[in-house]
Design a protein around this nucleic acid. Sequence first.
DNA 1: CCATGTGAACAAATTCACAGCA
DNA 2: TGCTGTGAATTTGTTCACATGG
Lengths: 215, 215
Amino acid sequence: MPKRNSSQRLESVSCATLHRLSEYLRCLRHLESIGITKTSSRDFAERFHLSAVQIRKDLAQFGEFGIRGVGYDVSQLAGRISSLLGLDQGRSVIVAGMGNLGSALTRFLSFGPETFEVVGGVDCDLAKIGDKIGHLTVRPVSELRQLVRETKAEIGILAVPVAAAQSVYDEFVAAGVQAVLNFAPIRLRIHANVRTRNVDLQVYLEELSYFLQTT
Amino acid sequence: MPKRNSSQRLESVSCATLHRLSEYLRCLRHLESIGITKTSSRDFAERFHLSAVQIRKDLAQFGEFGIRGVGYDVSQLAGRISSLLGLDQGRSVIVAGMGNLGSALTRFLSFGPETFEVVGGVDCDLAKIGDKIGHLTVRPVSELRQLVRETKAEIGILAVPVAAAQSVYDEFVAAGVQAVLNFAPIRLRIHANVRTRNVDLQVYLEELSYFLQTT
DNA sequence: CCATGTGAACAAATTCACAGCA
DNA sequence: TGCTGTGAATTTGTTCACATGG
């Protein structure tokens, strides 16, 4: 039996699988919170309208997590998924662009689980420098590199206007951030060594628009 | 030659294709804005690091848009894509949840193209009722149905806390909204007749987290 | 001749069907 | 027996190679 080592990152895992794993994790945490300690792929799938086979296939890429004939231990499975997503260690996040969206995202993150901590915020707009977002002080974008170095931030959130997006992205890359979540509606020239994920409100709305029946 | 009618919605178009079409459209608008009137799939792909064949395949699902041996007319192609995404008619949007995120999204949309207009905002929090977001007055969630009817809104944006998300989603559905963009980190029990798209910051961050090498 | 548009080949992802183990 | 884990079948999506036509 080819035992996979769940502590090392596989390059070959699809984005779709990771997406689902993250959702599974959330659902498991929910079960935990309501006191359910055991589940099966079938039961789990039915509760959250997922696919039971898909769940098993997704997990199979990382090892064996259940007991045949029985099912899964909720907390244990949650722990294993959390660990393989790299969530047992905290992740520091820096937000670039402290406008409406940037500050909303910052506040949003302070509610969620402690895994992702916003440790810094920068803005191009000089008027915003020194503003307080929660307990965070907005600093000039020119200090981004220093800030990343100071905080050892691994993730950058890009919430600046389109015009500044590419250059701030490049700053993030130069500063040594390993992943970027981009909210600017632009196709960035991506740096290969930095995982970049786009979140594009306008694209999502346009996708939905297609399905609005005119009949 | 099986001529497709680009004015009717095909049920069979993949989400990935729609996503790309929306991106093509944005890129075309960019070319327009810098005065470029003609392009080819190759040229276009190189400019925006896309795949030339993919572009042609995506377009092929809807008809013929180019001239063999020549390429595409930028404005014309933009118009055709815009039309098949259903963007030539305006779309009314209602935002539920006028907290940080909701109001940021509202403001964000007032910058983008006029296709999507936020025509109403509601909140569960009584303290927020009556607040002004731009020229919009926040109304109680109990008036959601009436608001949808008044404005003929087709799209709902769900930016309420997790605890309220399912019930407000159900309200959107009951009110007759045709599509929902959900920002609450929860797996909604989806209504089949309503296109629902989740945008989940936490999931995106967890996906990125996986790739943060610990080596 | 050149770039589009497309059938055919290929790859990836999902689903099926069942083997294997508690 | 019941549910996990998995090879095989299927579906879906992408890439290739070229026929088509301005």
